[in-house]
């Protein structure tokens, strides 16, 4: 006896398998609930600034003075200098949009190329400077952008490694002095 056309099409060998999607969906919904709970939609990061300390340790390397790069942050503009006069003093007056961060960044890159081992910069802001402005200035002296020339620093094993920051160690120099 001949089979009906519908029966002929559905032979046992080609039976369709259905994936049990409902339990998978349950797992997905649970996962989404968990991720929504723990996900922070506000991306935050940290900028480390150690407290300034007065060192009593005598300086062994008396012949070579440290750079001690210092940045005065005033309402009128910025002044970049080395306490031991290792670099010429530079001033960056305020422009229309605020502090001239582009020129400051260029100057910082040039100094970093000259002193690749140096990592510390001392900030000396005046009391009226806003925290937001300080963070922008810190970015200009810390963060190495994609357009900057590549900088390398010699590792302990003598191999040159790409530098991640310009002057990554920012210290507020007048926290204790009150100047």
């Amino acid at each position: 006896m001949l089979k009906k056309p519908s029966s002929r099409r559905k032979s046992r060998g080609t039976e369709e398998l259905e994936l049990p999607l409902v339990p998978i969906m349950d797992a997905f919904v649970t996962l989404i609930a968990f991720l929504l709970l723990v996900t922070s939609l506000l991306a935050v990061t940290l900028i480390d600034t150690p407290a300034p300390v007065v060192s009593n340790v005598p300086d062994d390397n008396k012949d070579k003075k440290p750079l001690m790069l210092t940045l005065d942050v005033k309402e009128t503009g910025l002044r970049l200098y080395s306490t031991f006069r290792r670099i010429p003093e530079q001033s960056f007056p305020k422009v229309e949009l605020g502090y001239d961060l582009e020129k400051l960044h260029e100057a910082i890159v040039a100094i970093k190329q000259q002193f690749p081992e140096e990592k510390t910069i001392v900030f000396m802001p005046t009391p009226e400077v806003k925290y937001d402005e300080l963070v922008q200035i810190m970015d200009a002296v810390r963060v190495l952008t994609k357009t900057d020339p590549p900088l390398f620093v010699k590792g302990e094993d003598g191999i040159d490694r790409p530098e991640e920051h310009l002057f990554g160690n920012v210290i507020f120099g007048n926290v204790l002095s009150g100047n």
Partner: peptide, 17 residues
């Protein structure tokens, strides 16, 4: 920062967006 330094905190981590 001065107050925290006096209380024994030596490392400040500024949280920014």
């Amino acid at each position: 920062m001065y107050t925290a330094g006096m209380a024994g905190y030596k490392q400040f981590r500024l949280t920014v967006e």
